[in-house]
Design a protein around this nucleic acid. Structure first.
Length: 491
RNA sequence: GGGGGUGUAGCUCAGUUGGUUAGAGCGAUCGCCUGUCACGCGAUAGGUCGAGGGUUCGAGUCCCUUCACUCCCGCCA
């Protein structure tokens, strides 16, 4: 053993430490029991997945790390080319185009534990810069075939590496539209029993006199609500805290009352008096709730409601301790819309992957209502965390031109930006599709961690800096000169 | 780009309405004890209270600015 200086942090301890110290001395941090075991788990999970994929007949291939910049999606990391002055490589955001080209090449089942690079801001479950996906693609398949492979893989992996129970062995499929209504998000935590309902109609009734909501509804706003079971005995502070919390989240608040039956059905709470008995019965019918339950209501635009109901579902469930931490609840989110309208520019844009196959046989009429077109695009979600998204790809160049034209790209632009892809698809491409589950997030769930850095050996901090290696760093002028680069000094 | 939280010894933290010399536990160093294993006992060292400015007779504490880390929004097809 080498000699040892005084340690900047204790190693034999479960104590939490500032991330800054942990990341700077990651080699010491990694000696600590919990994270050491997490990293070993990660290694084992990856080996297991490799083995399972190989058994299923998938071949593992590497794809280029230095590739070309793509116009859609996240910001690219750029790498200047010495031999081609003024030109740049980009690090792949995912091996998306390559894996489709692999299908065209006649390798029908591909996978890779693929590094992906995106220059976007970090979150607790999102590393800045780089992360790993189990990237896979299959030829001559439909959506169900991909589901079968991935579902089996997930079930086996999670059963092998965790004692937690799976809520569903057969993952439920929820349409994007339904998810946005019932959960306010396309990554719902199904351990949470709370459901969102739309009760806009109630506020068009004569016998409801809650004028603030009625006025807003008249001008196009919607009302959505969350019902909590048997909360009649909760103190006033419980309700007020949630209302206050909602205001802190930027919403106008959450109106609430509790259903009571004291001689007759009534609503208890600050706004209860605005609802007639008949209106209350109608709400109870619509939201499937009973005497003793409470209701929280928000009014606003669709976007505003989705945001606040999603957060409120989580907040209320935590306050009421409704989430069983010993369960994994998987689901598929399906039927994503092909396009969406950008509210700022009013332009039609691809809502997810522009290379996805639209559903059905598109007539000219369908193309005139692009927002109605659904795609064979899907996500897999576990406990409210998006594990991956995938799609059946569009392997028909003519159809692709049509779809891109809706999003405002002409043929020349597509030929230029996606030349390799379009060219390949015009030589007899097989129908194909795939998906790419996030390895880091899978291990994070299995390790029961809330932060992705706890399952990453040498992570960067939130500002995309490696505090141990001092990356990114300045380079010497000779290097820049060789690359034909000069720097504008900031400020 | 925006909002919240945190920042006091190597580490984790306490520090009252602004008041004299800023403390504790762990760790470190030295010594003693010891079939020890999160040993025990004693002593010692260790502080720009994140940084800068302001208010005040007096600032760890109040005000302003700024930096770092972190969580969230935007962003991540």
């Amino acid at each position: 053993m080498g000699i040892c200086k005084e340690l900047p942090m204790p190693i034999f301890s479960d104590q939490e430490y500032a991330e800054e110290i942990r990341l700077k001395y990651r080699f010491l941090d990694l000696r600590r029991k919990k994270i050491h075991e997490n990293i070993i788990l990660r290694s084992k999970v990856i080996s297991y997945i490799r083995n399972e994929m190989t058994k299923l007949g998938f071949l593992e291939f590497q794809t280029p790390i230095l590739t070309s910049s793509s116009p859609e999606g996240a910001r690219d990391f750029l790498v200047p080319s010495r031999l081609n002055p003024g030109k740049f490589y980009a690090l792949p955001q995912a091996p998306q185009q390559f894996k489709q080209l692999i299908m065209v090449s006649g390798f029908d089942r591909y996978f890779q534990i693929a590094p992906c690079f995106r220059d976007e801001d970090a979150r607790a479950d999102r590393s800045p810069g780089e992360f790993y996906q189990l990237d896979l693609e299959m030829s001559f398949v439909e959506q169900e075939d991909v589901f079968n492979v991935v579902e089996k893989l997930m079930v086996n992996t999670f059963k092998s590496f965790s004692n937690k129970k799976l809520m569903f062995d057969k993952f439920p499929k929820i349409s994007y539209k339904e998810a946005m209504l019932k959960y306010g998000t396309d990554k719902p935590d199904l351990r949470n029993p709370l459901i969102v309902n739309d009760i806009t109609e109630i506020f068009t009734r004569e016998d409801v006199s809650f004028e603030i909501f009625k006025k807003l509804v008249k001008s196009g706003s919607k009302v959505r609500c969350i019902v909590t079971k048997n909360t009649k005995d909760k103190p006033r502070s419980f309700f007020d805290n949630i209302d206050k919390w909602a205001k802190g989240e930027g919403a106008s608040g959450l109106a609430y009352f509790t259903f009571e039956n004291d001689k007759d059905i009534s609503a208890k709470g600050p706004i209860g008096k605005f609802f007639s008995k008949e209106a209350l019965l109608e709400i109870m019918k619509k939201t499937n709730c009973e005497i003793g339950d409470s209701i929280f209501m928000a009014c606003g635009t669709k976007d505003e409601l989705e945001k606040i109901t999603s957060l409120a579902r989580d907040k209320i469930a935590r306050d009421l301790d409704l989430i069983d931490e010993n369960i994994f609840a998987f689901c598929w989110i399906v039927d994503y819309p092909m396009f969406e309208k950008n509210e700022l520019t009013n332009k039609i844009e691809f809502s997810h992957n522009p290379f996805s196959m639209p559903q059905g046989n598109l007539s000219e009429k369908d193309l005139k209502n692009p927002l109605e077109i659904l795609a064979y695009q899907y996500d897999i979600v576990c406990n409210g965390i998006e594990l991956s998204s995938g799609a059946i790809r569009n392997h028909k160049p003519e159809l692709m031109y049509k779809l891109f034209s809706i999003a405002g790209y002409d043929k020349n632009q597509i030929d230029e930006k996606f030349s390799g892809m379009i060219n390949a698809l015009s030589y007899g491409a097989p129908p194909h599709g795939g998906i790419a589950p996030g390895i880091d997030r899978i291990v994070m769930l299995l390790a029961n961690e809330k932060n992705i850095r706890e399952v990453t050996m040498f992570p960067m901090n939130q500002n995309a800096q490696d505090l141990m290696m001092n990356a990114p760093s300045e380079v010497n002028p000779d290097q820049l000169k060789e690359l034909n680069l000069s720097l504008k000094t900031k400020k």
